[in-house]
Amino acid sequence: MARKQAILLLCIAALSMSHSWVERLMVFHTDGAMVGAPGYARGTVSRLDPSFNDFQMQHLLPQSSESGITPTDRICKATQTIGNYTAEFPSLQAWPGAFIALQYQENGHVTLPQLTPQKKDSGTVYIYGTSSPSDEDTLASIHRVWNEHGTGGDGRGRLLVSRRFDDGQRYQINEGPISKERQNRYHKVAMDPQGADLWCQNDLRLPLDVRRRYSLYWVWDWPTAPSDALPEGKAEIYTSCVDVDIVSDIEQGKMSFVDGQDLNLAGIKEQLVDKE
């Protein structure tokens, strides 16, 4: 019994040390269900690759625990350059005004909060969009600088949405009370690629004026709260960079969300209906 408990604790600790990135993007039908082929973040590496590890996808800023965010810290991981896609992991194809989801795993940051007592909560995700991306784009020139009106900073992009990291439904299977409660409330049949887990998602509507390629910067801001040891707290930010290929000039119609759909494919009503 003691050995089993030790193994369980090690598994939970490993889970809490894993961090999150955009695993997949999907387009929504106007009923609020995901349809079509998935898209991915730039430079996606398969979790099924024998050599896979989190650091191939994780982009943490600041890069050193001894420093803060610097003016030269790039918002995208070095492997996530513009257009870096493969046939196995292509970019999302969408159209002006499309409703889309950016999905990611919660990795215990929501369902096991006791493992990160230095955090006030699971943080906030900011999603920025631009038709004029650059591989030289920096976090400091975009995050909390670009605004929803497109007038912040250099004016090349805008803040599309800000969402809580915890979307209120999602979970990974573990023995924590939050996970157990959500497993009961939001029960679903296991389905790849999520398995028995229910991934988090940020849902949004693309601007109506996008053409050709539109780039998204997903920024998860998860600061450490101020304490005696860290009076000013500490920045901890993770990013994923994504390209969306705009394949049609046809604009998507009004969202008429249908309740009671399969949770493997359903969007979050509150995030979709307020973006019409």
Rank of each mutant, 00 (worst) to 15 (best):
M1T: 08
A2D: 14
R3C: 05
A6R: 09
L10P: 00
L10A: 13
L10D: 12
C11W: 01
I12G: 02
S18I: 00
S18G: 01
S20L: 03
W21H: 04
R24D: 02
R24P: 00
M26A: 11
H29E: 13
A33H: 05
A33K: 13
G39V: 04
V45D: 04
S46C: 06
R47C: 00
L48K: 14
N53W: 12
F55S: 15
Q56W: 02
Q58Y: 02
H59I: 00
L60C: 11
S64N: 14
E66W: 13
E66C: 12
E66R: 14
S67C: 09
I69L: 15
I75D: 06
G83T: 10
N84G: 04
T86F: 05
A87Q: 14
A87V: 12
F89K: 10
F89I: 10
F89N: 10
L92E: 06
P96N: 07
P96K: 05
I100K: 09
Q105I: 09
N107F: 14
G108D: 10
H109I: 05
L112S: 06
P113Q: 04
P113S: 06
Q118P: 00
K119I: 02
K119D: 07
K120T: 15
G123A: 11
Y126E: 10
Y126S: 15
I127M: 10
G129H: 07
S132C: 08
S134I: 10
E136S: 12
D137Y: 02
D137V: 00
T138A: 08
I142V: 12
H143M: 03
R144L: 15
W146Y: 10
H149N: 12
G150A: 05
G153C: 08
G155D: 08
G155W: 10
V161I: 13
F165I: 07
D166V: 03
D166G: 01
R170G: 12
Q172E: 14
I173F: 01
N174L: 03
N174C: 15
I178T: 13
S179I: 09
Q183H: 00
R185F: 01
K188V: 06
D192W: 08
L198A: 05
C200Y: 06
N202D: 13
R205T: 10
V210D: 08
V210S: 05
Y214V: 05
Y214G: 05
S215K: 01
P223W: 09
S227C: 06
D228P: 00
D228G: 11
D228L: 11
A229M: 12
L230C: 00
P231S: 03
K234C: 02
A235E: 15
E236C: 01
E236N: 04
E236M: 03
E236Y: 03
S240Y: 03
G253T: 12
G253W: 11
D259Q: 13
D262V: 04
L263E: 07
N264T: 02
A266Q: 14
G267V: 03
D274N: 14
